[in-house]
């Protein structure tokens, strides 16, 4: 739906007939409240997206002669990108990050916490909820500071592990694990809330009936609960995948993508190319690739819930 719906041109060209015109007016008046939202979405959402399509095919830079005369370079940026070892590395790391953090970490942990909370008292629930949600509410840079202190060489974790001789500089030896852990810590609350809501819709009688039939806890979970909340699982997976895909601030503040390129996911590589090496066109081409990946996920997501519903 676009602005054209607000003023269907056909109606403007048919002034003679009173009845449809009045109905059109009613429709228009009813749609009026949508106008501010449409303007914002068209100018500040569709705008940047279209702009990224345009800029990805130019050689725009921040400085040097190409900053004054940027020109169309066709698919040069894309050719360069797929021959760029660091870019391929960044895609791989992004994939590892998304799978490790979103699909495995946040999703599973969120489900487990939601399941464990079923039937617990109010106090237990609010303490657990409170702590998990607090981690979610913490701004990403603060989360990075927390984890930096926790994992760094003189940090809390090493203080504990030092006793058994396992201390090391975790941010250096295991940067991917560090950013995945930190992101799981921050992102689990969302999945937990989704699953808590979904589980509260699972009828207790069904589970009890299954229990009476002798089904173990595990079988009840796999055969009764999970199929019933299937749609929430899909929705949650898609949403957190898309959020994690574009994650920047936490990684930037925690490892800066390093050491070297060891935790440089695509958003960080894009940032480096654009704002450190001043290649705006090249960075935009990467942005476009990320956008397309996001769009594909988003479409799959829509298809899944549509088929399901």
């Amino acid at each position: 739906m676009t602005v054209s719906t607000v003023t269907p041109p056909r109606l403007a060209g048919s002034p003679g007939r009173g009845e449809p015109r009045r109905r059109a007016r009613t429709t228009l008046r009813r749609l009026l409240p949508l106008v501010p939202a449409l303007i914002l979405l068209v100018v500040f959402m569709a705008g940047p997206i279209l702009w990224s399509v345009y800029i990805a095919f130019t050689n725009e830079t921040l400085t040097g002669s190409a900053s004054v005369n940027s020109r169309f370079v066709g698919v040069d940026n894309f050719v360069k990108m797929f021959g760029d070892e660091d870019f391929r590395n960044s895609l791989l790391l992004t994939f590892v990050f998304v799978v490790g953090s979103a699909v495995v970490g946040q999703n599973t942990l969120g489900l487990i916490i939601a399941l464990l909370q079923r039937g617990r008292g109010r106090v237990v629930r609010s303490v657990v909820n409170g702590v998990v949600i607090a981690a979610w509410v913490v701004p990403e840079v603060v989360a990075a500071a927390c984890w930096f202190s926790f994992l760094s060489e003189e940090g809390t974790l090493n203080e504990v592990l030092g006793a058994i001789g396992l201390s090391q500089d975790w941010l250096f030896t295991a940067p991917m694990i560090a950013i995945i852990l930190a992101n799981v810590w921050r992102g689990t609350a969302f999945s937990m809330l989704v699953y808590s809501a979904a589980l509260s819709d699972v009828p207790g009688e069904l589970l009890e009936a299954a229990a009476v039939d002798g089904a173990t806890t595990w079988r009840r979970l796999v055969h009764v609960t999970l199929p019933l909340i299937r749609r929430s699982i899909l929705s949650n997976l898609m949403l957190i995948t898309l959020q994690t895909l574009a994650s920047f601030g936490l990684i930037y503040a925690l490892t800066g993508g390093g050491p070297g390129t060891a935790s440089q996911t695509t958003p960080l590589y894009m940032y480096e190319q654009a704002f450190r090496y001043f290649e705006i066109g090249y960075g935009s081409a990467m942005a476009l690739v990320m956008l397309v990946i996001g769009a594909v996920f988003s479409l799959v997501y829509l298809r899944l819930i549509k088929v399901d519903g």
């Binding site: 940047p48 990224s52 959020q243 574009a246 958003p267 960075g283 935009s284 942005a287 990320m290 988003s298």
Partner: peptide, 10 residues
């Protein structure tokens, strides 16, 4: 679903 922050460069 679009990763809007991913397009900060454009």
């Amino acid at each position: 679903g679009l990763p809007v922050t991913a397009i900060m460069v454009p």
